[in-house]
Amino acid sequence: MNGIMLLHCLENDARRSVTDLADILGETEKEVQNTIRYLEDNKIIVGYHTVINWDRANNDHVDAIIEVSAKPERSSGYDKIAERIARFPEVSDMYLMSGKSEFFVSVSGRTMREVSDFVGQKLAPLEGVQATVTCFVLKKYKSNGVILEFEQEEDDRQLVTP
């Protein structure tokens, strides 16, 4: 079956059941299941996440983006130091960047203190890390393509038009 169509359906709604997907795409459930397994096994689908607006959840939550300057190593370049940083569970996303700093690291914690402890005690002392700049997120407007703070746009079409 067409894996790309399946990915488009799941991209918009990861919670769609296999039955629903089979119905939408006109495939058997077995076929859909097999394709999903194939996409997962080949790391094309790498996870199913819920987009949460923590600000509304009445729950302590802090996000920060940390610029990390790092030194490359002979033969492995940035990959070895990147792996050490990426393995911390506090890190949710991490990228090697062009520009002033080498890495952008997204970190979440319950409080600012928790995040700064992570930076001060775990991240900054790593060998190869030369400097860090921690930027706390003050307000999240959009996350994973979903607008969080603004009014949804409604379907205001007439019911019947030529």
Binding site: R157, Q158, L159, V160, P162
Partner: peptide, 27 residues
């Protein structure tokens, strides 16, 4: 217009599920 005639009929049932439009649903 035949469309107009049908539109008037539909307008009396605003809670209906319409598959009647000739315009895209995307913004």
């Amino acid at each position: 217009s035949g469309i107009r005639k049908f539109f008037d009929l539909v307008a009396e049932m605003p809670e209906c599920i319409s598959l009647g439009v000739g315009e895209p649903d995307f913004q």
